[in-house]
Structure formats: C-alpha cells, structure tokens
Nucleic acid binder design. Structure first.
Lengths: 210, 210
DNA sequence: ATGCTTACTGCACATTTGTACAATAATGGG
DNA sequence: CCCATTATTGTACAAATGTGCAGTAAGCAT
C-alpha cells in the first residue's frame, strides 16, 4: 500500500505563498522579527525550510510580500465602513473609528508586525513605496468623509482645509492605535473609542444632521 | 620611545558606556536593528568588539540601556518648554508642539531607533517597563497644561475630562510624529505644526486669554 | 495505468552571530 | 619611578542563519 499516507500535500503556488506569508506574520507576532527565520517560518507552516526559496526568490521577498499583505488587510478592516453609502455620515465615521481601534487592527500582535517592518522602510525603496501607498490610501478614504462633513455643516469644502482635517483625523487614529496596541491594559478599547470620537468631532465640528 | 603612540585610550566605565550606547543608536538609525551587531557597534565606537561585554553583561543589556537613553532624550527635547513658567500658557503649548514635531524628535533616524525597540516591548518585561514610564511621563507633563487651559476658560478641571483631553492631545502628537518622521517629504515640519495646533486647540478649546 | 511536470524534501556549506577567556597595556596611586 | 588595577585587545568557538543543489514524489494529462 504505497499511497496510503502521502508524505506531503502538493499545493498551488498561490495557496502556498499565502500560507507562508501568514505563517511569517504569526511568527513575527508571537516572537518578533528577529525570530522570523526561514526555519522558524517553515516549521510554523509545516513544510521543509527549503521550500521557502522555491516560492520566493529570497527571504527579503517573503518579507515584502508579508508586509504588503499585512498592511492591506489592516487598511481594509479599518475602512470597510467608510464607503458604505446608505448609512448616515456620522454612523460611518463612528464605525471607522471603532473598527480602527478594536482588535484585530488595534492589537499587540499587529503592532508587532508593523513595527518590525517599519524599520525597513527608510532603508528600502520597495518598503517605502508600500508604506506610502497604504498611508495615502487611508487618507484618500478619509477625505470624502471630511467633504461630506463640511457639506453637512453647509460650509465650503476648501481643499486646504479638507487636507488639514484629514491629516489631523488620521493622526488621532494613528496615535490612539499606537498606544492602544502597546498598552492595552492602560487604554482599553472603549476608552480609546471615546477619546477618538471626542477628538475627531472636535476637529470636524458638530455633525448632527445627516 | 615606547610611549609615543598609545594603542588605545583608557576611559572611565561611565564615559565608555555612553559612547557605546550612542554608537548603538547611530548604527540602528543608519542601518536598522538587525545591523546592530556587537561587531558593527564596536567598529562605530572605534573599539574592539570584545569590549562591549566588559561594560555590559550581555548585548541585551546594552539594548535596554540604549532604549532608555533614547526615550529619555526624546521626551526631554519634546517637553522642555512645558514647565517653563513665566511664559504664557499658549506659548508653552505651541513650543511643545514645535519641539515635538521638529528634528531631532520628529526625524527618520529617531523613528528608526524607536521602531526597532518597540518590537521588543511585547516580548520583554523590562522594555515594557521603560515604555510605560516614558508614556506616563509624557502624559503627566501634559496634564498640567490641560488643567491650566481649563482654568483659562473658567471651566472646572474635572479629572475624567482632563485625562481624556490629555490622551487625545498625546495621540495627535504621536500620530503626527509618526507620519512626519516616516514621510518627511510629504509632511514638512511647518505643515505638521500647523495641523497639530489646529487639532490641539480644537480639542482644548480656544485659549486666547492668558 | 503511465509518464511528465514541478512542488517538495534533505543535506551540505560558507558566513555571521554572541559569548568566553587569556594576554596586554594604559593609567593612577604609592 | 614602579607596581597594581583593570580597561582593552585578540583569538577561538559553538550555534544559528540564508542559500545552493540533487534527488524524491505528488498529482494532473493523456
């Protein structure tokens, strides 16, 4: 009975790549970037460590892929509610705040992964590119909300002011995300959300009509 | 003439420790944490690599020391103006904003160092301790300003509200510091400061009297 | 079934890492 | 001036890391 117990499963390159990427992120979240060696990652994924180099030209390539994957997932989880037209503006804003400042976005493991990658950004053009796309994507998703808010208050949406408010709101969320991820005991989710709503509506002005 | 050219200079342990710490920070800023090996650091400091273990029990100890040193320096540069009584409240706030969002605090190299250490925080009790002290130190320095601001507006300084405003202002500064350090071309210093003043005075309320 | 493609394994290798330790020499106190 | 102290060097070493490569076997096409 030769085929009774296959020694390994043969996956499509796409699936395997995703498996390896997710294993990488789990390892980084659990033990930090320095522990994310090819051997540790492949063990986490349950494959031979030499398989990594079959799907990625180099370990760095795996890191790029993992970074892009992680950032895209975070941005998506954070901003899903922004474009959900049909809900009142204020609801959408509050939902984005909540999604951004709750797990799994605001989370020690996610911060862990993010911080590990951040230190590559200044030294690496590809990382910098990925970061800029993510940052601008976030801000671009925020601006329509600001413009709507201006309209709701019957005020003109001057581009300079809209940009300023977008940067400010982004900063509030970034800062709270940071501290909330780092010190969850000191800054529980609900408090983070309360502070964010307070600050963001102070910046945007009152939005009571819809 | 045997003594004409000494092979090395003998320093006091305190001075040498500081030299090694600063060399560590320079290496991390220039090449990232993974490049901060004992050999690289000692080369930067101009000493034999085995000297590190004479002044620090382990490489980890050097890292702790470097982290504490870096954070203390940043906090000091950021908050020097906060306690400078004799200047009007609004001036002090604006000076803190400027100091926080200008080099050398808001700066790619400083972020680099910070991010490198941050990823150690969740895995390491001593790192977490250092981070918490720094964070609380910052907030504690901010709260008196908020209380003064409440008083200037003839409003009671309810502890819960003061804490909320302190967290919010901290978040604004953290977030802008982050993005300004990472993307200096996109967010130049003066724009960062303008956004911060806008957001923080929106949170605190108008402070026109002193 | 059979064969072909290629996903996958296993092992070896050079390099780099933190650490250990004995030898050396700078410097202050006598 | 000389000696004791100890800051500093030089070398050695085991462990770990990314990469290279030959061979194996899973699974689809025919």
């Amino acid at each position: 009975m030769p085929d009774s117990k296959p020694k390994f499963r043969r996956e499509s390159p796409e699936q395997r790549r995703v498996q390896l990427i997710e294993a990488t992120l789990r390892v980084i979240a659990r033990k930090g970037v320095s522990a994310a060696t090819v051997r540790e990652i492949s063990a986490e994924a349950g494959v031979a460590f030499s398989l990594i180099r079959h799907h990625f030209n180099t370990k760095e390539d795996l890191m790029y892929a993992a970074y892009a994957y992680h950032m895209r997932k975070m941005a998506q989880a954070s901003l899903a509610a922004a474009t959900d037209m049909g809900r009142p503006l204020k609801d959408r804003i509050r939902q984005c705040i909540r999604d951004t400042l709750s797990p799994p976005v605001t989370d020690g493991a996610a911060l862990q992964v993010w911080a590990g990658f951040i230190q590559m950004v200044p030294h690496d053009a590809r990382m910098k590119q990925i970061h800029m796309e993510t940052y601008l994507g976030f801000r671009d998703a925020l601006e329509p909300l600001i413009i709507e808010a201006q309209a709701a208050q019957k005020q003109p949406a001057e581009p300079a002011l809209v940009e300023q408010k977008a940067i400010a709101c982004n900063a509030v969320l970034d800062g709270l995300w940071l501290e909330g991820s780092m010190l969850p005991d000191m800054l529980p989710t609900e408090q983070l959300i309360a502070v964010a709503e307070f600050a963001i509506f102070a910046i945007l002005g009152p939005i009571d009509l819809d």
